[in-house]
Design a protein around this nucleic acid. Structure first.
Length: 443
RNA sequence: GUGGUUGUAGCUCAGUUGGUUAGAGCGCCUGAUUGUGGUUCAGGAGGUCGUGGGUUCGAGACCCAUCUUCCACCCCA
């Protein structure tokens, strides 16, 4: 059989790991600057912790783990066993539900508001396609236990600061679930909010006709669609959108509340580049207030982040009235953007600085000894294991992009000198053995 | 889950209406060149043609199944 990674998964080479670490270290630093603490949860949970939390589609996409041993012993019909009978654990599907589980499980001990960030892989049994995998990292920051809209303001600033540090200019699009509910209410389709928002969310992708067609297909009447149509118009600015919503949604208390929340956030984010976009919907299963999505300004990549407020997340685990709000960074897409724009630092790889040549059997021991000494001085150096042809050792250094090669054979050993050669320029110099590490550090 | 698509050497790919022993470029190994490379030249290794069935005198090619790749839908990051 041919060795290959499982469907929808990836290996990360040294160069790719370096890029991921670079972005993640900036995210980690930013999270901690804003007062978020790290949390890690297990890669799998009890299956009932996850099932039913992501809607009917979600359950299908959860990776279920077979019971150990004779997994069929609990099946009522062994020839056609039910998933719930033969699987008792499941792989983490996102970071938010395990976080909610953690909060409820430790409700007594946590100081509220509780702010945590989490960067771990999640798994989905989805069909892979462009930019979509069955194993991928989520980088989330959430705060629970505070209804204050200052949290939303803070998260906008967190987004801004993280992307500024990454040198990736972005626009943060804002909306509020209550505004969407208000629109549905004043249009007389309050009972079909999800169908409406799922269609509206596609406006930028399939256009106005496309949205209307989808609404028709979902059973909306012509009159209902006519009522909803103002939501599909373009607005010149955030202020225009809000002014329009103010008059349109005047009869809906929930709608007006949404408008006021948006106004509050908008008035406190300062210079940060935000725009109100009432077609923005996002994950409808639990968001209840503000929702936000981040897009890169200079490259068409879809969203590089998103989040929102969920008033009842811990409710699914029996803890009522704990409001949460959180954001997520799309690690893979951020890296793709930075690659496109050539904004990744040039020297990310952490390979060795030097390669000690192994020139002959007799000289090997002394060369290795010097290598060990240089390592104690902190030099990242590799010792070529065989006394191979010099050409071969050069080729190896080139391929591994090791910048300096060291010659320490019989002649050098007699004089107590080391030849340091720059592999790209070809420059070569002799340096006393006790100065080698210091010399390479200055090169 | 639905529809389409892909799979031939380590990599990128040729391979005629089904017909001897399946090719190229790059890479790899050896030598020219016993401690100063990237070039050049000569030689060499490497393939159960994704897998399993089937059609046929004969299958890399045709049919079925399955896995995989990529794309779209659903949904989502």
């Amino acid at each position: 059989m041919k060795p290959r990674v499982a469907k929808g998964t990836r290996d990360f080479s040294a160069a790719e790991v370096a890029k991921r670490h670079y972005v993640m270290s900036i995210l980690r630093e930013t999270f901690e600057i804003f007062g978020y603490s790290p949390l890690e949860t297990p890669s799998f949970e009890n299956i009932e912790t996850l099932m039913g939390k992501y809607g009917e589609e979600g359950d299908r996409l959860i990776f279920k783990i077979l019971r150990s041993g004779d997994f069929l012993r609990h099946a009522s019909n062994p020839t056609e066993p039910k998933a719930s009978e033969i699987a008792d654990k499941a792989l983490r599907y996102d970071l938010t539900v395990p976080f909610a589980r953690y909060v409820v499980q430790n409700a007594g001990q946590l100081a509220l508001p509780f702010k945590r960030y989490q960067m771990q892989p999640v798994w989905r049994a989805d069909n892979p396609q462009k930019g979509r995998f069955r194993e991928f990292y989520q980088c989330d920051a959430d705060v629970v236990g505070s209804k204050s809209l200052w949290q939303e303001v803070e998260l906008v600033h967190l987004y801004h600061q993280a992307f500024s540090t990454l040198r990736l200019p972005v626009t943060i699009r804002l909306n509020n679930r209550k505004v969407l509910a208000g629109i549905a209410e004043v249009s007389g389709v309050g009972d079909r909010l999800v169908d409406f928002t799922v269609a509206l969310d596609k406006l930028d992708k399939i256009g106005r006709e496309g949205v209307v067609a989808e609404l028709e297909a979902k059973g909306f009447t012509a009159e209902e669609i006519r009522h909803l149509e103002p939501s599909m118009q373009p607005f010149a600015s955030s202020l225009d959108s809000l002014a329009f919503l103010r008059s349109w949604l005047a009869s809906s208390s929930v709608g007006m509340q949404g408008v006021e929340e948006l106004e509050f956030v908008l008035s406190h984010v300062g210079e940060v580049s935000t725009v109100v976009d009432i077609t923005l919907a996002r994950g409808l299963n639990y968001y209840t207030g503000c929702i936000m999505e981040v897009t890169a300004n200079e490259v068409a990549m879809g969203s590089v982040g998103g989040g929102g407020r969920y008033d009842d997340l811990t409710g699914i685990f029996g803890l009522r009235d704990v409001s949460g709000v959180g954001i997520s960074f799309g690690l893979d897409r951020i890296i793709l953007c930075l690659e496109d724009l050539k904004r990744l630092p040039a020297a990310l790889t952490a390979g060795p600085r030097a390669l000690m040549f192994h020139l002959s059997e007799e000289d090997g021991a002394a060369a290795y000894q010097l290598t060990a000494q240089l390592r104690k001085q902190g030099l990242h150096i590799e010792f070529y294991p065989e006394p191979a042809k010099v050409k071969k050792q050069f080729d190896y250094a080139l391929k591994r992009e090791i910048p300096y090669v060291l010659f320490y054979g019989g002649a050098e050993q007699a004089e107590g000198l080391v030849q340091i050669k720059n592999i790209t320029t070809g420059d070569q110099e002799s340096v006393p053995v006790d100065q080698v590490a210091a010399r390479i550090a200055t090169l």
